[in-house]
Each structure stands twice: as structure tokens, then as C-alpha cells.
Amino acid sequence: MYQPTQFVQPSIAVMHELMRQRPLATLVTLASDGLNANLIPLHLSDAPTPFGTLRGHVARANPLWTDINPAVEVLAVFHGPDAYISPSWYATKQDTGRVVPTWNYTVVQAYGHLQVIDDAQWLRAQLAALTDHNEAGFAEPWAVADAPPEFTEQLLAAIVGIELVITRLSGKWKVSQNQPAVNQASVMAGLQGTGQMAMADLVAAGGKGAD
């Protein structure tokens, strides 16, 4: 990933937070017929440090788990908030006119070697962890145990586990750090005016977030 210095996200904690808030990752693998990309929700565990482990599952019918070289690295991409930035928002537009459109975004790329885990007990634990994480914000969270056991067993037979111990982690927060303060303020106003509060907050934080 192209990484100008001012857009580098140095904090593992901040990257981990994005990965937990936006767990639907694009998992890129190299198959016998070339590159494949699958959208898969991946649950992050902190261990082993410093980068952690990603766990998920795929349909047994998905060739991802059978057509993969375990010696070749895979890539999981997590996309955070993004927004089109109109040049009309820049305060300096009135002074120089030297402004152009751009796109602000946040993204984390996690690298490692994919391990396939075809084990019912492991899958139950993975499904419970993933479900509990995503249901935590609901007033009445649903749990895997709420489904009839025979139904759950049928579903478990139709999926296969995947695990990725992260060996490299790269984050890019492109949120107007390359603009003067007056433009950052006017971009925040433009984003707030169009209801894009998440990106406005990122611009206000200077792209670094908080550990």
C-alpha cells in the first residue's frame, strides 16, 4: 500500500479498534487460477502480541479453503469510514483556486498465512465469539445457544474454520493531514453539513485516534 508519511497510522491499538468496529474484511488469497477476494467477517483476538489473530469461517462449498497455498501470504483488508472531499469546502479556494477533489479514508491491511481448521468444537467457539462481539450493542443480544441444537449442528457441518496469525499490520488514515488548519476546519464543516460525522471526527483528531 502506498504510504505517504503523514498518512501512516502508527498505533496498533487504533488499527485494532477499526478492525473490531468494521469486521467485514476483504480476504485476498492466491488460488491456482489467480487472485481471489472474499468478503468474510473476521473476529480479532489480541494474542499473540503484538498484532493478534483473525478467526472466521467459510462455506464448505467455497473453494477458498481447498485451493490455497499455505506457504503464500494472504491479505485481509478492513475498510473504515471514507468520504468524498469537495474542493468547494476548502477555505483557500477563494484565495488561490488551487484546489482539487480528493477522497478521505481509513484502512487497515493485515498479512499472514492462512490456516484451515475443520473442527466442530473450534467452530462453535469461533461462532460464539463472533456473534457475542457483534450482538453486544443490542438490548436483547442473540446467542448461538438460542438456536435449536440440531439446526446449529447442520450449519456447523456446512462450514470450515479459518485462522490468520497476523505477521504484518499496516494502517493508513488519509484524513486531510496534508491540508493547512484553515482547510481542515472547513472540511470538517463540510462533512458535518452532509452528515458524515465519523470522518469529521477523524479529521478533527488529526488522523491518529486514541490508544
Rank of each mutant, 00 (worst) to 15 (best):
L39P: 09
Q6I: 13
I159H: 00
V100P: 03
I159T: 00
R22N: 14
S170T: 15
S186D: 01
L127H: 07
N178A: 07
N38H: 13
Q179K: 13
V187R: 02
T194M: 14
G171P: 04
Q9M: 05
L54T: 06
E17T: 11
T167G: 15
D118N: 12
R98G: 07
V165K: 15
F78D: 01
V108P: 03
H57A: 00
M188Y: 00
I166F: 07
S186W: 03
L18K: 01
T26W: 14
V187M: 01
H133D: 12
A189W: 08
A145P: 11
H79T: 11
A147Q: 10
I159R: 00
S176T: 08
I12V: 13
I40F: 09
A13N: 05
P48N: 10
V107C: 10
P149N: 12
Q126I: 13
Q154V: 14
V116W: 05
H113V: 03
D118L: 09
G161K: 00
T49R: 15
D118A: 12
Q179N: 13
F51K: 02
D146P: 13
V108L: 03
A47M: 14
R20N: 09
G195R: 10
Q184V: 03
I12K: 08
I159S: 00
S45H: 15
T53Q: 09
L130F: 09
G190A: 01
G97K: 07
R60D: 12
V100I: 09
T26F: 14
V160S: 03
A147E: 10
A76L: 10
I166E: 10
L130R: 00
N62H: 05
Q94L: 14
G161W: 00
A128Y: 06
L75I: 10
V160C: 02
G161T: 09
E150M: 12
A210S: 14
L54W: 01
L130D: 07
M19S: 03
W103C: 05
A181S: 05
N69V: 10
A205F: 07
T49Q: 15
L156C: 07
G34A: 05
V116E: 06
F51H: 07
N38L: 07
N134E: 10
R20M: 08
T49M: 15
L27P: 00
V107S: 04
A47T: 15
M19K: 02
V203P: 00
L169Y: 11
A158R: 06
A110S: 03
L54V: 08
E17V: 02
H16M: 03
Q196F: 05
N134D: 07
S186E: 01
G195W: 08
G171C: 07
Q94C: 09
K172G: 04
A59L: 10
L44V: 11
P41V: 06
L127V: 13
G112W: 06
P23G: 04
L75M: 14
